[in-house]
Amino acid sequence: MTVGEYNKAVDVYADNLYRFILKNLKDAAMAEDIIQDTFEKLWIKLEEVSALKVKSYLFTTAYHTMIDYIRKEKRNRTVDPASLYEESESNHYSDLGEVLERAIQNLPADQKAVVMLRDYEGYPYREISEITGLNESQVKVYIYRARVFLKAYIGSMEKVI
């Protein structure tokens, strides 16, 4: 990979990578740190990383850095749907986007990451599997469960609205 290709990767993927991490962490400063750290790692391994694999490398590195951060901060928590609905009833949302955003934040970390990679980046199961280190079936199961959770959450909020 050349310096030019590296700079092109910055142009093409930095925003997407930032969105992916920011949506997961909801911490802009930490997301920026992770992006800088990720590209720094790419720069160090510039000669080893192929330009064709750079996107996957970036998302993989950023994902694992993020997971390490989440584990460190003990933010990886499971959600009791019953308590979630109680919580959601006490809030007011003006549109579906906010409801969906709230629902996403209540997904378990693994499901949140895979569904974002799927919807935001359009990754197939195989590439999500490579990025997250899960097997393809597990990725598929997580996505399906995330959809069920999101639909249930949206449905409950629509009743409130």
């Binding site: 930095a14 925003d15 990578l17 930032y18 969105r19 920011l22 920026e32 992006i35 800088q36 579906l96 986007g97 969906l100 996403i104 569904v115 974002m116 919807d119 935001y120 959809r147 999101l150 639909k151 949206i154």
Partner: peptide, 13 residues
């Protein structure tokens, strides 16, 4: 409606 819509975000750095 469960499909996430990608909103535009710009990384300033």
């Amino acid at each position: 409606q469960t499909r996430l819509l990608a909103d535009t975000m710009v990384f300033k750095g």
